[in-house]
Design a protein around this nucleic acid. Structure first.
Lengths: 117, 117
DNA sequence: TCAATAATTCGAGTATTATTGAAGCATGGA
DNA sequence: TCCATGCTTCAATAATACTCGAATTATTGA
């Protein structure tokens, strides 16, 4: 991931409402959530939500699919993966051999290894 | 890390110049870099740099120490670690048991295990 | 066909953020 | 002491981002 893209992706997440939207979509998983359901969960007006969803979609953090009169939104894990990759590779002590500390110290301990990893 | 703090930290990084500043400081490691050296590296005017460094410091992503008439800046890895922790725990498929994919798939492969991890 | 529902779009108003150039404040060396 | 250096601060301006409410589009079901 290139620096300017990374900055744009970070900017998309750098807003409380949008961060919560994304979080809710991660929790919802592959089933996704309709815009209305999101609005209810986050206590946001439809137009505000629409605005933020557009930003997230533009940044590639979210996908949308129309189902009848509902629009289902889903988190795009691939983009988040790429962003985390950028941050760990470019912005972490791990990227600097002089420093023994690292930025993802707990993952190995906390989570069991996943098959797909 | 709390959601609003995470959003503020993301906002601090969500700007090309600031992202490059942080990257340069990560590469510089514990020795850090003087503001002037950063300005030269990034081809930014002193006042612009000062502005962005203030933002980064406010977000806790950067530390400063005066040495004579130089001001040395250092990346704060602890804050970055906390941010990455927030993102992997709250914004990743890993946080959703229904989804088999994950957001840090390459780390185990690419990087050798660190002692301090 | 008509009314209700689900979302998006638009324009206006406000707030926040970024850039610029000039001025200011220390520090170190002549 | 004086000047040059390194950096910060400030005020003004420009550019972006956010919110609100009204209008619009599209779909469903009566």
């Amino acid at each position: 991931m290139e620096t300017n893209i990374a900055a744009a992706t970070l900017a998309a997440l750098a807003q409380p409402t949008r961060l919560e939207i994304f979080r809710a979509l991660v929790v919802a998983g592959p089933a996704g959530l309709a815009a209305g359901a999101l609005a209810e969960q986050l206590a946001a007006t439809p137009s505000v939500l629409s605005f933020h969803l557009k930003e997230l979609r533009f940044a590639g953090l979210v996908d949308s699919a129309t189902q009848g009169r509902f629009v289902i939104y889903r988190a795009r894990f691939d983009t988040m993966t790429a962003l985390l990759g950028f941050l760990t590779e470019n912005c972490c002590a791990r990227s600097n051999p002089q420093d023994a500390s690292c930025c993802v110290p707990d993952l190995a301990r906390k989570a069991p290894p996943l098959k797909s990893c």
